[in-house]
Design a protein around this nucleic acid. Sequence first.
DNA 1: TTGTGTTTTATTGCCTCC
DNA 2: GGAGGCAATAAAACACAA
Length: 290
Amino acid sequence: MDLDVELIKQSMKRFSSSDSFDALITVYKSAVFLFMGYETFDHFHEDKTSTKRKQIYGREFQAMMDCLEEEDCREEASQATEKKRRLTVVQVKALEKNFEVDNKLEPDRKVKLAEELGLQPRQIAVWFQNRRARLKSKELERDYGLLKANYDALRLDYNNLQQENEALTAELRELKAKLCQENEETSHAVEAEAPVSEQSKNHVSSENANAQLLTSPPSFSSLFTGSSSSSHPSMNWVQFSDSRTILSNVYQQPQLVKVEEQSLLFNPEDPCNIFSVDQAPTLQWYFTGH
DNA sequence: TTGTGTTTTATTGCCTCC
DNA sequence: GGAGGCAATAAAACACAA
């Protein structure tokens, strides 16, 4: 039900004579009550306290009735102690419309609005002030919701990556253990062969090592073997400035080898060359835009 | 009907701008 | 220094469950 309350009120006010005015009110009331499904005004009064009915006939109509009662009691109210009164639906609607146009109030507009709505300029100013506060509060609430959703998504992403990282680490350890075992078996087999002099033994073993390195590139797991626990005595770590690591063949003489970013051993896309094995990235890392 | 939580209107005090 | 904005708060009005 969409009643033009202001139109009805204005029509009513045209009747300055109290008799005709009262008669018109009765006619309007009857029309409205019939429209609402009540047979008479009395029936409406009987049902006025019903909460469900209140919701059906709506705030707008309630406001209209309140306005009428308010006008009836205006003289009494002016004499009595001034109480806090809620603005009518019409007044609030007008204020809302003005607020949409501009939420700041110039003095001229304030006075004009006050005259139009029959309120004090101070009331208009207060209403705009409170409305801005409500708007700000809602915006803060909305921003908080968005930030929280973003944070939750990021957190979930981080947890997934962490789990993936743990799984890869476990796999790596497993491969490393296998490799150690294989190396031990190989060295025992070499010792069991014909004994040779220390010099030739060193020579042979170095040649074997070189041959092994030439024929078979280091396995994935060997790349992550730290120097202290390396099963390859000839392998050392080369530390990148950005914490990436790579091993090099320093068989003859230990030395640091500078490796370019475009190293063939590492694919820059490969996440394995970003983090060390035992250290998961911190949350801060994810926020630095890597 | 009543207690309680929420919304709306209004006040106060402080701050900034002209 | 006055006007106006804002944050904090009071208090009345309102909504609603029990």
